[in-house]
Structures are given as C-alpha cells and as structure tokens.
C-alpha cells in the first residue's frame, strides 16, 4: 500500500488515513477480508479492532466477497415513485439477485442505496463507478448485459 504514503501526508494524524486506506484495501482484496483489515492495521500502525470498528460503520465498505460488478440501486422516495421496486423484482427474476446478495456465477452483487443524488433522472443506479439513470425494465437489462 505504497500510495498510502502520499495520502498520510494530507493529515496530521495517521488515524485520519483509515478511510482512504480501507478504500485502497477493498480495491486490492475485493472486500475487507481479515487480511485486508490486517494490512490496513499494520500499515497505519492502528489496532485491528479499531480498523474493523470504523469499517463496519460505513455502508460502502464490504464485509463479504462481492461479485465482479456491484449494482447499487437507489430505492429512496424519488426513485421509488418511478418504479425502482419493479426493477428489484426484475433483478430477482432475471438474475436471482436479492438485495445484499450475489449471483451464483459471481457476476453481480446488489446493494440497495439511500439516494445517490440522481433524483431528476430517477430511477438510478451505480454499476461499479458508472452512473445509469432513467432506468426501466428494458434498458436496465441492456445496460447490465455490458457487464460480463
């Protein structure tokens, strides 16, 4: 985790680098496995229990292995009234995906989001770091087909 050296310089305490370090570890290990937590802990010289305690507070840190592509679908009010729930049904029927779950082939994981700031283009989702909006039953499958 060499990139951490430049990140640590941005803060007066090492502890402040925990959040960025967790992102880097998650990217490297795919999820915050015990090894990932260990690496953050030893690199920053911060107790493991503390690293784990911080990591479990935040929804975007993953504590189990994820599929190759992470679907983060918003179902909050503005997305809900434009049919986000029917998209959930579709994901369940077509891919066997439940919120919090991963497809058997390890292709997709699904996480429900609490507003991703795309309410004017509802319903919306992030797939990995890509935004997709104005979703409906047809275009969501077209979009997802691009993620193999």
């Amino acid at each position: 985790m060499k990139e951490l050296d430049t990140i640590k310089e941005k803060y007066p305490t090492t502890r402040a680098a925990i959040l960025p370090a967790l992102y880097i570890a998650q990217e490297k290990f795919g999820w915050l496995s015990p090894e990932a937590i260990e690496e953050v802990s030893s690199t920053l010289n911060v107790p493991k229990a503390l690293v784990r305690g911080v990591s479990t507070f935040y929804a975007m840190y993953k504590h189990k292995p994820m599929g190759r592509h992470l679907i983060q679908l918003c179902t909050n009010v503005s997305c809900m009234i434009f049919g986000a729930e029917t998209l959930l049904e579709l994901l369940k029927n077509k891919y066997g995906l439940e919120p919090g779950g991963t497809t058997e082939d390890g292709r997709f994981s699904l996480v429900i989001m609490e507003c991703i700031g795309a309410c004017d283009r509802a319903p919306a989702m992030l797939v990995n770091n890509d935004f997709h909006s104005n979703l409906d039953d047809n275009n969501i499958t077209e979009i997802l087909e691009k993620y193999k």
């Binding site: 502890r15 402040a16 959040l19 960025p20 935040y58």
Partner: peptide, 26 residues
C-alpha cells in the same frame, strides 16, 4: 485535498463529519 466518505448520511452533520475525517465512526 478531497476526503471521500463511505456511505453514511449522518456524516453530513458537521460533528459526525469531523469524526469521520479523523478516521472514526461517524
């Protein structure tokens, strides 16, 4: 510099934000 949060609404509250910036639970 930019400090990226990790999906916690409460960190929009300024003292929770400060805790989070210090590397703590928000």
């Amino acid at each position: 510099s930019v400090h990226q949060g990790a999906g916690a609404y409460i960190c929009g509250e300024e003292t929770a934000l400060i805790e989070s910036l210090e590397g703590k639970r928000g």
